[in-house]
């Protein structure tokens, strides 16, 4: 009987410990195992996670931007175009609320890639940003050629984008807001047109910011 109580107490302790464990976001995308040998010749298996590759684009100030700008920061990325009248206004209305929440936080950035390579030149992006109420470098609006941007979307951020002359504004794309951590790994994707998903993104960003490497 005494033993039983002891076990029960132990079980309860374990349960309690499990509950207080800090929450962690999943790491998304394909992964592979890398087998390497250490100095003593023992085999060691490392998991290699999918990361966003380096890029080079012009931003809304016509300045060349690479991934260096996002070093040691978490960021929210999306794909849009300025003349889009369907889901983009909703996505950016919602993304603006996230921007407002983290404005001035040096660990958080925002990145919007335009998929309209014909019209959305940096000057157009600048005007758009200002009219949205975004000023300063924390939210980057990036312009690039079609092949680079589209493959970045499909292969790396896992967001479907394409030109479609049958669509209302000439392009179709998904409305994901993709959350990237300080190691360029994808940690979440949220439907930017739904307020409840955007709220989830905000709370997940707090979790990610609290995460120790």
């Amino acid at each position: 009987m005494k033993k039983l109580t002891l076990y029960a107490a132990f079980g309860m302790l374990l349960f309690g410990a499990a509950c207080t464990q800090e929450k962690k976001l999943p790491i998304l995308g394909d992964r592979e195992a890398k087998i390497s040998k250490d100095a003593n010749g023992n085999e060691k298996i490392d998991t290699v996670y999918k990361t966003i590759p380096d890029f080079k684009f012009l931003n809304q100030d016509s300045v060349e931007v690479t991934q260096d700008m996002f070093n040691n920061k978490i960021y929210v990325a999306d794909f849009f175009f300025t003349s889009c009248t369907t889901i983009c206004p909703v996505m950016h209305r919602n993304m603006k609320t996230i921007y407002d929440k983290y404005q001035g936080n040096p660990e958080v950035m925002f990145l919007s890639h335009t998929i309209d390579f014909k019209y959305d030149k940096p000057s157009v992006l600048k005007k758009y940003a200002q009219k949205l109420g975004v000023d300063g470098p924390q939210w980057q609006f990036l312009y690039g050629d079609k092949a680079t941007v589209y493959s970045l979307a499909k292969e790396d951020y896992l967001v479907a984008v394409q030109e479609d002359s049958a669509a209302t504004d000439g392009y179709v794309h998904q409305g994901w807001l993709v959350l990237i951590d300080k190691h360029k790994r994808i940690r979440g994707a949220y439907d930017g047109t739904k307020t409840e998903e955007v709220e989830k993104l905000k709370s997940d960003m707090d979790v990610l910011l609290a995460e120790k490497d």
Binding site: T85, H92, K96, K131
Partner: peptide, 15 residues
């Protein structure tokens, strides 16, 4: 509603 907002509040200077 996507541009003009659920309460007709608009969207920055865009709408």
């Amino acid at each position: 509603q996507n541009c003009h907002g659920v309460n007709g509040e608009g969207l920055g200077e865009l709408a």
